[in-house]
Simulated assay, not measured.
Amino acid sequence: MAMAVLATALTMTPLTAFAQTTCGGASWYSAGSRTASGERMSAGNFTAAHKYLPFGSRVKVTNRNNGKTVVVRINDRGPFIHGRVLDLSKAAAADIGMVSSGTAKVCYELVG
Rank of each mutant, 00 (worst) to 15 (best):
R64A: 10
V70R: 01
M41W: 12
I81E: 14
G102F: 12
T8H: 13
V106F: 13
T21E: 12
G56D: 10
G25M: 03
T47C: 04
T62L: 06
M1G: 10
N45L: 15
T8K: 13
T69S: 11
C23H: 06
A48V: 06
G25N: 03
S57G: 10
V59K: 00
V71H: 04
A49H: 07
L86K: 01
G38L: 08
L86N: 01
H82T: 13
M12S: 03
N45E: 11
S27H: 01
N45T: 03
V99S: 02
S57M: 08
A104T: 00
L86H: 01
G32F: 12
T103E: 05
A91R: 01
T8N: 14
K68G: 02
V71D: 05
C23R: 09
Y29N: 04
M98C: 05
V70C: 06
A104L: 02
G78I: 02
V5L: 12
C23E: 09
K68T: 05
N66D: 07
L15G: 07
D95L: 10
G44K: 04
K51W: 10
V106H: 02
G24Y: 06
M98Y: 00
L10D: 12
A49N: 03
T13L: 07
S33C: 10
S57D: 08
A49R: 02
L10T: 07
H50I: 10
T22V: 06
R34C: 09
A2G: 14
S37H: 09
Y52V: 04
V106D: 03
S101D: 07
L86R: 00
K105S: 11
A7N: 15
A9I: 02
H82Y: 13
P14F: 11
D76Q: 05
T16M: 13
G83L: 09
G112P: 05
A26Y: 00
R84W: 01
N75K: 08
A48P: 02
I74N: 02
A17Y: 15
V106M: 08
V71T: 14
M3H: 12
I81Q: 14
T69K: 06
K105N: 07
M98E: 00
S100A: 11
G32N: 12
V106R: 01
V111F: 10
A7T: 14
E109M: 07
S100N: 07
A9E: 15
F55R: 04
D76T: 04
K90N: 11
Q20C: 07
I74T: 09
N65G: 07
A36E: 09
A92F: 00
R73T: 13
S89W: 02
F46Y: 13
C23M: 07
R40C: 08
I96V: 11
R77T: 06
R64Q: 13
N45W: 08
G32D: 14
S89G: 08
A43W: 04
N63M: 03
M41K: 07
W28S: 00
